[in-house]
Computed example of a mutant assay.
Amino acid sequence: MIEINSKLAQTIVDKMMKVIPYNINIMNNKGVIIGSGDKSRVGTLHQGAVQAIQENRMIEITEDTKYVKKGVNMPIKYEGVIMGVIGISGEANVVKPFGELVKITAELLLSQENIANLQRVKEKEKEEYIFKWVYGYNDYAKEFIEKGKMLHIDILIKRRAVLIQSKKKIKDKENFLKYLSLDEYHITLEEEKLLLLIREDRLEKFIEDIKEEIDLSNYYMGISEEKLNMGRAFYESIDAAEIGIKLNLNNNIIYYENVSYIFSILESKNLGSMLQLGEKFCSKGYEGELTKTFMAYLELNGEMNKIAKYLNIHRNTLNYRIEKIKSVTGKDIRNYSDLINLYLAYVIYVMRNSYYANDQ
C-alpha cells in the first residue's frame, strides 16, 4: 500500500503555500506532522488530525487552545483508506475551501504515485522474466509460457538473439533500441554488451535500419540461428561475436550458422594435427605480419593488388610473405585446399586458446 511520505508531504506544502496565504500541515495516518509551513512542528503529534482519523471525518476547530490551533483538518483518502490528514490554520469557514483544494491535490498525487509504483513493479517483473527467459536453457514449462502471456510476452515467436559488443561503453544504445518493435526485447549485460531479441521475420529490416543510423565498425554483432529457445540462442550469439573479436574479422556481423562448424571441430577428438599447424603458424607469424597477410588474403579473395594496397606494401613483398607462409606451414595459400586447411587450423588454434584462457 502506498503512503504519504515526508518528501511528498513537504513538496505539497511548499507548492500550495505559494498560492494559499495560510499555514498548511500534512500529517500521516498516525496524526504525526510530516510536512509543514512551520518546520519546527514537523515530527510532533497533531491532536486535530488524531481526532479526524478516529472519527473519519473533517474536524473544524473554532478556537485556539494550548494544544491545537483553529482551522480545519481533513482526512486524505485513497480507495477509501485514510492515508493522512490535511490541516490548514485559520478561520474554519475561510480556510475550508482551501483545505478541500489541498486535499484533492494530495489525493490526486497519491493516485499518480500508486500508478507509477504499479508500473515500476510491472517493469521490474517483466525485466526479471526476460532474464530468466534468456538465461534458461531447458524447454519452456507451461507455467512459464503462461506467465509470459500475463506480461504480454509471447515467447513462442521465433526470434534471434543479437549480441552487440563494443570495446568500450556502448554509446549508441538508444539508437539500437528505437528500432525494436513492441514484441522485441533487450537486456544490458555490461556497459559494452547489449543483447537484443529480434523477431526472425524482422531481422533483415532491423539490420538495414541500424546500418543507416549507426557506424557498425565500432561493434561486433553476433547473431544466433532462428530459435524458440532464447537461452540457446543467447549462447550462440555470444559464440558468434567471440569469433569475430578473436579473429579480428572485418565483417563485423557474424551469423552463428556461418561459423558453427568451428565449434563442431573444437569438440572433435582429432584436433592434434590442426592445433599443431595452427600453433606453428601463429608462433612463427613474426609478430602478426604473416597472420595479417593471411587474413587480408582471405578477406580480399586473393586479389594481390588490393591486398598489397590494403597492407601498404609492395607486390614483391606480398609474394615474399606468401612464400614465407608456405615455408613455415607447408601450405601454399594460393592453392584452395591448402588455404582452407590453414584457415581452419588458424581458427581452431585461436579459439581453443581463447577458451582455455577464459577457463583459467
Rank of each mutant, 00 (worst) to 15 (best):
P97S: 10
P97F: 01
P97C: 11
P97Q: 05
F98Q: 02
F98A: 02
G99Q: 04
G99R: 01
G99Y: 06
E100S: 07
E100I: 15
E100K: 08
E100F: 13
E100L: 08
E100D: 12
L101H: 14
L101Y: 06
L101D: 07
V102R: 05
V102W: 01
K103Y: 03
K103P: 00
I104Q: 09
I104R: 14
T105G: 06
T105W: 05
T105H: 03
T105K: 13
T105Y: 10
T105I: 11
A106M: 07
A106P: 01
L108Q: 14
L108S: 12
L108Y: 13
L109Y: 02
L109W: 02
L110A: 01
L110Y: 12
L110E: 09
S111K: 15
S111D: 14
S111M: 13
Q112R: 13
Q112S: 10
Q112N: 15
Q112P: 00
Q112A: 05
E113K: 15
E113Q: 11
E113F: 14
N114Y: 00
I115R: 08
I115C: 04
I115Q: 15
I115F: 05
A116F: 15
A116M: 03
A116D: 09
A116V: 12
N117V: 03
L118N: 15
L118G: 13
Q119C: 03
Q119A: 02
R120V: 07
R120P: 00
V121F: 11
V121H: 09
K122F: 12
K122Q: 06
K122W: 07
K124S: 10
K124I: 09
K124N: 14
E125S: 11
E125H: 02
E125G: 07
E125Q: 09
K126V: 07
K126D: 03
K126S: 06
K126P: 12
E127V: 00
E127P: 01
E127D: 08
E128Q: 10
E128Y: 12
E128F: 09
E128S: 11
Y129F: 15
I130G: 02
I130P: 00
I130A: 00
F131A: 09
F131D: 13
K132E: 12
K132M: 07
K132G: 06
K132I: 00
W133E: 11
W133P: 05
W133I: 05
W133M: 11
V134D: 00
V134A: 05
V134T: 03
